[in-house]
Design a protein around this nucleic acid. Structure first.
Lengths: 337, 337
DNA sequence: GACAGAAATGACAGCGCTGTCAATTCGCGA
DNA sequence: TCGCGAATTGACAGCGCTGTCATTTCTGTC
């Protein structure tokens, strides 16, 4: 029926345990034996049973991708990250379970416990804002589950992947300055997201570098959603002196700004320059196409998963790797008339 | 350490096998016994080990969601479907593996075999165009794996979920007719997708019902992507008599049409009415907001998964359930001047 | 009240693999 | 050549559950 480890052992003339050792890449196997076993596995088309490995050993070859399910602000982002994670899993013969978590209530405890106890998941990959949700981190720590974070706020203690968002935001706003803009507004994202902080910090950095004053009136609170971008823009349009450029902390809000500009009869980029952050597909689907910062979500998912697996395979402590950003200068920004 | 089935048995005073029977909802257990066992499970917080169940029995409590990974046209759609599937899995204590498949090459065979042999998945949920990919269906059949389809082309032989897209498209185009439009163009989706056929058929139905002639010049081939929408619209704008309304087979292409309209200096909806299909988040983020048909993707994912589980639990042959559509009339369509 | 047949329950082996620990073989200096 | 620690390998039990088949306990009938 099924080719078992024992069959491979018999074919090779060694004990099942030795085959098991080869399978698990344990070091104490003579190279010649290893080759023989590998050859037999290959020719017999042997495929280990995850269920049996899970039952007998402690390993399950399962990782979980945890993400916030409360609102659905950027499902494109999640989809891309997930694709990247799956890529990495594929390469290392891991499987991934997608696990949406509701942050309010105790749901996440139940879910995490289920993952750990029922499925013996070996590790976790998280996206913001879960990356910095203390109760969750706490629970993972209690269970001793390694985790890899994508764009976590606390960079010191984390493994995973991040981008220098502050530097990217600064570069983006500097572009606006170079185009002659002096009244540059910023729409902030959800308060406790790292992304909000860094992008805001970059905005301030750029103002400072350009010798422009920081005016709190030009900073409006948003919450990463299209609708909040509309509202924030309306607020800015009510100011006595309109900004000539608006930097929204993500593309969705930037789209909202452009929507509100249309509503108000302002022509982008003639009357107003707009830029966002993330370079979601939306960015090139707006008219005019949106100037933004490309964040390689898929790549980041993959790298985060790879870092996790390094840890799981005991190949090192795991790193927080940094990926480069790219400015995407498009038609939604222009020189001040 | 861990509460095992044996522990529950001891606490209840029955044999492990009986507890197992309760766990698997087998019928030959006296009701009073069943209650006792269930109570014990509850109070001891017993959680069966999927690995052990998978090893011993034939069941794995795993289903796979298969989707096409070639291009990434509508990741929002996939993300919503996946959320729905996860919902259903949660309710029935199943786990889901996300499994992107490349249709070209033999990749899908390797992947499917891996799912079946390695993970013993019990069933599969598929999205278009996989739902009608003969080699895949063939392979699933060979393995005897039940599958549930979302919007499959061949409705007779399938279980899963669908929507009356033809009727929906017809209703949408009828709306345009009622607004006074006579020259209504259509941008078709990728050729072999059921969605393309049905939406086209609904378009024709509406023309016929309104007594309007079908003019092939007003039908342009697209491929569901934003870019293809732009190209198709440019083609239409090159016609001697411009259409007064364009029905694109999905929202992304409709967004492309609006983009091209901007490019061409046409004002939507004053000079041109535009409508799409799917009601993705994009629809409300465009200016003006897009008239479209709401397709409840998340609900559809959930229902497809539920149908699959009905089959897996032997509760019936499985149905192809139909979900209702909703017209979303927004500002991208207006009365002909 | 005895008995056939159905309903409910239990004993036991084993799913395919790995952990533990013991046994064997190897390499090398004395 | 002998002896010893290190490098390899193997024997065996058991992970937590379910399939098979035997056994016990109910039913209802005459």
């Amino acid at each position: 029926m099924r080719v078992r480890l024992e069959d491979v052992a018999r074919a090779t003339g060694v004990s099942p345990k030795t085959v098991s050792r080869v399978l698990n890449e344990e070091s104490s196997v003579k190279e010649s034996t290893r080759q023989k076993v590998l050859a037999a596995m290959e020719s017999m088309n042997y495929r280990p049973s995850p269920a049996a490995r899970g039952l007998a050993g402690s390993r399950s070859f399962l990782v979980a991708m945890l993400y916030d399910n409360n609102d659905n602000p950027a499902s494109t982002y999640l989809a891309e990250v997930q694709d990247g994670v799956l890529d990495a899993c594929d390469a290392h013969r891991y499987s991934m379970m997608a696990c949406p978590l509701r942050m309010r209530g105790q749901d996440f405890i139940r879910r995490v416990d289920a993952l750990v106890f029922d499925h013996h998941i070996e590790g976790v990959i998280m996206t913001p804002p879960l990356t910095d949700y203390a109760p969750l981190l706490q629970r993972l720590k209690e269970h001793g589950v390694p985790h890899s974070s994508i764009s976590p706020v606390h960079r010191e203690a984390s493994i995973g992947v991040c981008m220098d968002e502050q530097q990217a935001a600064k570069a983006l706003v500097m572009q606006l300055v170079e185009l002659g803009h002096r009244r540059i507004a910023h729409i902030v994202g959800i308060a406790n997201h790292g992304a909000s902080r860094w992008r805001m910090a970059g905005y301030k950095d750029a103002l400072a570098a350009a010798g422009l004053p920081f005016d709190p009136h030009y900073v409006v609170q948003g919450e990463f959603s299209f609708g909040s971008g509309v509202l924030a823009a309306r607020e800015l349009f009510a100011l006595p002196e309109l900004p000539t450029a608006i930097f929204a902390a993500n593309d969705d809000m930037a789209a909202g700004v452009m929507w509100a500009a249309n509503e108000r009869g302002l022509k982008v980029p003639r009357d107003l320059s707009v830029c966002g952050f993330d370079d979601t597909p939306l960015a090139t689907q707006l008219w005019p196409p949106l100037t933004t910062v490309r964040q390689p979500s898929r790549e980041m998912g993959k790298l985060a998963a790879l870092q996790l697996m390094e840890v799981l395979r005991g190949r090192g402590p795991g790193l927080l790797v940094q990926v480069p950003y790219t400015l995407q200068l498009r038609e939604s920004t222009a020189r001040v008339p």
